[in-house]
Amino acid sequence: MSETTEPELRHAGLNLADDARELREHVESDVFGFWVFLMSDAVVFALLFAIYGTMRHATAGGPDAAQEFKFHSAFWETALLLTSSFSYGMVSLLTKHGRGRLWPLALLAVTFCLGAGFLKMEIHDFVTMFHDGATPERSGYLSSFFVLVGMHGFHVFSGLTWIVLMGIQLVVFGPDERTKVNLIRLGLFWHFLDVVWVVIFSVVYLQGLIR
């Protein structure tokens, strides 16, 4: 690998090779900063998982996991979210290869729809549970369930808001330096939510349904 091509590989998805050294370093630190933020966000989720684990049996006579979880909806939610990660990956690739703004925008819209579909299904699940009397006030177990899964849902909602904003910025500014950096960060965020969801699916839903 020669000296000149090396910077191209620094950030999957973006061409930064032609930029000045100082700018490249700035982009690098911007993205690194977001990684660091995600680390602390991962600590938040880890703790919520730990709380959920300790409260697994604190149902206080109320509904438990096996009564409330529906496998098929958890499955389709997973499918929607994982597909949205794929479509966001396409956004990154299209930005990297400089395919204007139309294709990235289209794929961003697809990502938004899949994410919104996920959120709609999750809210529907929650409403159903509420109707069954499985509310967060019912027991410590349900409190920990709703806060853990709800926190992830809140992150997805924030991600959707961010997607809309990035769509607008792509239209207004085109793929300029700031937009590209923020697209990388949004990508990290979106994939991170996927990872967290995979753990939620395994630890909360699958484990809840097994017993």
């Binding site: 709380i51 300790t54 409260m55 604190a58 149902t59 206080a60 109320g62 967060p136 006030e137 019912r138 027991s139 410590g140 177990y141 409190s143 920990s144 709703f146 806060v147």
Partner: peptide, 18 residues
């Protein structure tokens, strides 16, 4: 705050809080 504002039971004495 979730306990105090939304009536949850993370750290209460009742309904499974710890």
């Amino acid at each position: 705050a979730a306990d105090r504002y939304l009536g949850m039971h993370f750290f209460t004495n009742t309904l499974g809080g710890n």
